[in-house]
Write a protein that binds this DNA or RNA. Sequence first.
DNA 1: TCGCCGCATGGAC
DNA 2: AGTCCATGCGGCG
Length: 613
Amino acid sequence: MMMTSSGGGGGRVCVNGLCGTTTTSQWKRGWAMKVGGFASLCYSCGTAFDNLRYCERFHLNEAGWRECKFCEKPIHCGCIVSKYLYECLDSGGISCMRCTRAKGTKPFSPPSLANKIPNGYSRFSGSWHPSVFTNRMNNSTLTPLTEGLDKSQHACLVSSIGQPFRLDEELPSYKEFGARSSSSNDINLSLRSIPTQLSLPTILDNNKPSLGSQPMYEPVYQQSLGVSFGNESSSVVPTSNGVVEGNVVPEKVPSVKQEQKPRQMVPKISKSGASIRSQSNKETGSDNRVARPPGEGRGRSQLLPRYWPRMTDQELLQISGDLNFDCTITPLFEKVLSASDAGRIGRLVLPKACAEAYFPVINTSEGVPVKVRDVKGKEWTFQFRYWPNNNSRMYVLEGVYSCMQHMQMEAGDTAIFSRLNPGDKLVLGCRKAIVATDASALPNPVNGDLPASDPVLPKIMDKGTSKLDSEQKSVIQEKKKTRNIGSKSKRLHMHSEDAMELKFTWEEAQEFLRPPSEPTVVMIENCELEEYDEPPVFGKKTMFTTNASRLQEQWVQCDSCSKWRKLPSDALIPSKWTCYDNVSDPNRCSCSTPEERGAADLEQISKRGKGTI
DNA sequence: TCGCCGCATGGAC
DNA sequence: AGTCCATGCGGCG
């Protein structure tokens, strides 16, 4: 139930002009209207609408009837009511939904009518989100997403609340959807695909890639190909020769439940609402990073999810490009560097499970030297050893300082360990920490002016504390907290991230919410409230500009041709919108009509993320 | 005095 | 309560 305050109520009139009744036993919701909400229909008209017979009953003698190109069924194309009942064919003509489904195309269906539309294509499930509609459901944009993937590798969208549903089944009703989405903390998508390894067919050389005099270690990510890895339960992995073969399913397969934990599985939706295909956007910093449990190693299934490699395929490709081998990169694990990891001591504490899974078995505390290659191909030798600790072991890599210096790694960055095959070599990659511009986004937002890694600070702490007054101590304590990126406060850090992501997600979600229908006005303690029977619905994101007359204008992008169209500033847009829906401007109600002047600039504005809604 | 080594401690889970 | 792990800190060369 959605409630907002309101200024008044008013009598209802059936929107059907042929009816126009003001009295009915039950008001029903009709089609989505341009101004937001849904057409209010009397019981009779609403029932006709529900039964998909509205046009036949009320528009039979109107113009605009056409025939399905395949089954010749008459369809009324002349009104908004029937717009979801047919699909315009690229080759001309229309197709009814039944034929559309039979031919395997993917008609769009808005939430409001979703349960009325026979729909279907398999292997794709999704949660309701505007980007799903606007970017997935169009015929033209699904294919690239799954291109190049084996059937078993098809990406699949999973409701973040763990209730995937297929679009070839009856879609959830409006109410049902609302219940689902509102019970979730976020309304994100989870995009998963199968591989845990990436085949890298590149030129085989002498394994000695040339190194520049000053190799730069740039962060190897920030862009994803859109299909991120992440299904540990997969039984299929591509091998280096491109053959898909079976893979041993871990004994304790990290379950779907684990996967559905939003933290790991949910890539952020770009602020711009761009499609999944293109949502990896450097400008928005969105990152389709998906934690994936490692695909090999002893006892790998016991690795804590926070150590699961979250490399994007782009990162892997970049590593492969840097190494320039005909090789297979298998992400093993990653770790956010603590201050002590990245400090001058040069000891990197390895998560126990990771160390035991991917490093040699050692029986003595001295350990063994291990050779690790960085992403530029330079080989380093570290001492892999352990310390006895509370009847257990604490594994460390010693001698990592120079390597970290070389790679410009510091506290807060993420060290990524991968396996390079053939050769079974360890590869150490680095992902730079995302620079938070918002102080609240910092793990310990104190001063915000202290570098994540401050090698001087330990000295201050060690040598100077006795001479400091309590205030100074306090400051240093705070600074000390601040520099503990990735240390014990890492857990807090993760929480902060979670919270930030949640906030972010909700903020984004809010941008798409629209009133679902006409509210019932109720009085509670002398306060008029609009009461909605249904949760809010998703609307399409739009842009606002101010014209020369200082009047606000709203722009919306056509889902079909991507042209920007100007609309009244108060218009509420459904999640799916095309030029043909542009009832406010008859001169631009077709995709063939050119954009208005200045509309192209909106694309740039949109990319810069300055759009409003 | 300094830096390294190895263990101890204690917070988080 | 047990385990993990970041980091403190004492000892030693």
